[in-house]
Simulated scan of single mutants.
Amino acid sequence: MMTTSPISRPRERIIETASRLFFRQGYCSTGINQIISESGVAKASFYAHFPSKEDLAIAWLRQREENWMQQLSERVGQHLSADKRIVAMYSMWYDQLREEGYRGCGFINMAGEFSSEESPVRACVRDHKNRVRQFVADHVLDQYRDTMTSGGFDELVDVVYSLFDGAIVQAQNFMQEWPVEVALKASLNMLSHERGEAS
């Protein structure tokens, strides 16, 4: 999620303005001239930092990922058990819903506006989602790695990651929190099932 703070440098103002407009209007409906006008920078300054709107989109996604992953790591890192780490992980969605409303995942929203799978923006989104899945494997479910087969562990990671990532999309779709609540419960039930099989 994005955190806002007083900013003065042109590049930061441009990204902050783009973040607000992309979320509110969508990428395709937001023009460069509007971004320039609302960020209060000169056109030459805009193009000095971002040769194209697509370059700006990628810069915004990368900044958003850096902030989001840092917060996720801090929350998850406070807990030792996988159950509590999953609860901490889902707290990101609850906070995002409170702060941004039912706008869903900024990465998924952005990817949906680019039809070509070869788009650098879609590649950026795929890379981000792969890093989130790897984070789930390495920092949320890692205690299960040595007690399961490699295939079983990968399947557990895929299911927990898919439940987590899909929850924010469905919360946007229904404009309610219950998809997040259901996905959290299902993720915890998965871990309970795995412990039951191991006992």
Rank of each mutant, 00 (worst) to 15 (best):
A137I: 11
P51N: 01
H193G: 08
F23A: 14
F50K: 00
I36Q: 00
S187W: 08
I86P: 09
S52Y: 00
A44K: 05
W93Q: 15
L191P: 03
L156R: 03
E74A: 09
G101Q: 12
S8H: 13
L21D: 06
A88I: 04
E177L: 13
G151Y: 04
L141N: 09
R24Y: 13
S39E: 03
L163K: 08
T4F: 11
C28E: 15
K43G: 06
R85F: 10
N173W: 09
I32N: 03
Q34N: 06
P10D: 09
M1G: 13
H139V: 08
M92L: 15
E74V: 02
V121A: 01
M69N: 04
A48P: 00
W60D: 12
C124D: 13
V182W: 03
I108P: 00
G196P: 00
M190D: 06
M2G: 02
F50V: 03
V169A: 13
E155H: 13
A137C: 09
L61K: 02
L97Y: 12
F107M: 14
M110P: 06
Q172V: 04
D142E: 14
E194I: 15
D127K: 07
Y27I: 15
L97D: 10
Q176M: 04
R103M: 07
T17E: 05
W68S: 05
E74F: 04
M190H: 13
P120F: 06
G26H: 10
R64M: 07
Q70I: 05
Q172C: 10
A123S: 13
T4N: 10
Q25G: 00
E194R: 13
E113R: 03
Q172E: 14
A183F: 11
L56G: 03
R20I: 15
K43L: 01
V140L: 00
K43D: 07
F23Q: 12
S73A: 06
L191M: 10
L61G: 01
G106Q: 05
G152Q: 11
R75D: 14
I14S: 06
Q170C: 07
R126E: 15
M190N: 13
S8K: 14
S162F: 09
E12I: 05
S45N: 05
C28D: 14
E177G: 03
I35C: 00
L188R: 10
V180F: 04
R62M: 05
E38D: 12
R122G: 07
A48T: 06
G196K: 07
P10Y: 02
L191T: 12
Q170W: 10
L191D: 11
S5N: 09
A186N: 14
V125M: 13
A171G: 11
Y90W: 08
D146H: 00
A186K: 07
R98V: 14
F114K: 03
P6A: 01
H79G: 02
S199F: 05
R62V: 04
V87A: 10
Y27S: 04
S91R: 14
L191W: 09
R64P: 00
G101T: 15
E194Y: 11
N173Q: 11
E118H: 08
D127Q: 12
D154E: 15
E12Y: 02
A171R: 03
N130A: 14
D95V: 07
R85D: 06
I58C: 01
S162P: 11
S115G: 08
T149R: 07
I35F: 04
V169T: 12
Q170K: 11
Q63N: 11
N109R: 08
A42K: 09
M190G: 01
L56T: 08
D127P: 01
P179L: 07
S119V: 02
V169D: 09
H49Q: 05
Q96A: 15
